[in-house]
Simulated assay, not measured.
Amino acid sequence: MTNVIETKDAISGSWVYRAAPSSWRPYLKLARMDRPVGTWLLLWPALWSIALSSKAQWYYFDFWASIVVGFLFGLGAIVMRGAGCTYNDIVDRDFDAKVERTKSRPIPAGEVTVKRAWAFLVCQCLVGFGVLLLLSPTAQLLGFASLFLVAIYPFMKRITYWPQAWLGLTFNWGALMGWAALTNDVGTAAIALYCGGFFWTLGYDTLYAHQDTEDDALIGVKSSALALGEKTVYFVSFFYIAFLILLISAGMLANVSYFYYIGLVIAAVHLGWQCRSVDIHNGESCLRVFRTNIGFGWIVFISIIAGQFTV
């Protein structure tokens, strides 16, 4: 077994390199287990939607049903984010070998063959399929529909400067599925939440993409970071404002209490801090701000929970 190289943007001291068996580490890297932020970003829209779908009717059964469904979505986010990253690495292996941040990924680094990566992808998809079968029929249909978005995503950077927009469509699909998992329907609040999440992802992933602008320009990979350039922070601010407006709309449609909107004030301050503190010319700054969206997700989630209560 080839020595496993720690990826450049992995969490410092990740358990993948400290505790996991050495033979597992290349596959855990493929699934981005050493970089959990993406799993959280995929999971948050679903958890927000699950919490919002109770519509202030937090009876005993609804509470425990939400806990179970949330657990299923957590497991699904882990395996399907891993599957999506594995697929992305297979498709992008030639590009990844030319980019400083990604050349240490398992396939370009020679830690995993393409054939074994495909096998690992199938295994992850089977687990995800098993989770999907435990959800409502509408959620199952939505889950299958999401595969189209996932399959197309790695190719978008070849044809458009806005692959981050496609990622926004893909990563926030859980907002629709979470609602459907509990109600077997797609409510207007879930649609507003999905649209808002689109702008959230467009913002944070544009900042993230600024880590690779020099390499991307050299090898011909497109991104919103390259398209926006020095105007990035202004546009990201607009994306975040649109996101907040749609979060407010989702709350109104779900009939939550004013506690939710108080929480959104804190969320707005956090997004404002992101825009003011990020240095788009510094990769470490972009990565640091990007990772803070885990905490931002907690702010919104707690705000939704608080909005279920009235005084």
Rank of each mutant, 00 (worst) to 15 (best):
V150Y: 03
L247V: 12
F238Y: 06
W40I: 07
S54T: 15
T188A: 07
S277P: 02
W44D: 01
I304L: 08
M1S: 07
T201V: 10
W40L: 05
L28S: 09
R81E: 11
T310H: 14
V112G: 02
V91G: 06
L202H: 05
T2Y: 08
G168D: 14
I305P: 04
W166I: 08
G187H: 10
K98C: 04
D185L: 09
A51E: 00
G130C: 11
L226I: 10
A51K: 01
P163F: 01
S22Y: 11
D212M: 06
T170S: 08
L264R: 13
W44G: 01
C125K: 05
V122Q: 04
A192Y: 12
Q57P: 04
V150H: 07
V269D: 05
Q274S: 05
K103H: 09
P106S: 03
W200F: 11
Y261D: 05
S249A: 13
E6S: 03
V131W: 03
R35G: 05
L28N: 09
A189D: 14
S303A: 15
G196L: 06
M33E: 07
V122A: 03
W58C: 10
R276W: 14
S12M: 07
L134W: 09
L226Q: 15
A56L: 12
C125I: 13
I50K: 02
P108N: 04
P108H: 02
Y261K: 05
I219W: 10
V256L: 13
V233Y: 00
Y87M: 10
F198I: 11
S14T: 06
P106Y: 04
G178R: 00
Y153N: 08
A97I: 12
A77S: 15
L193Y: 07
F71G: 04
R116K: 13
V127Y: 03
I305Q: 09
W15T: 12
Y260R: 04
A190H: 13
Q140H: 01
S49T: 05
G74N: 08
F296I: 01
Y234K: 14
A190D: 12
W166F: 11
L43V: 11
G283K: 08
K98Y: 04
E6R: 14
F198V: 13
L43S: 07
E214H: 11
L176F: 14
Y208M: 05
Y59F: 07
G229C: 08
W200C: 03
A51S: 09
Y260W: 07
A189L: 11
G38W: 07
S14I: 02
Y17F: 15
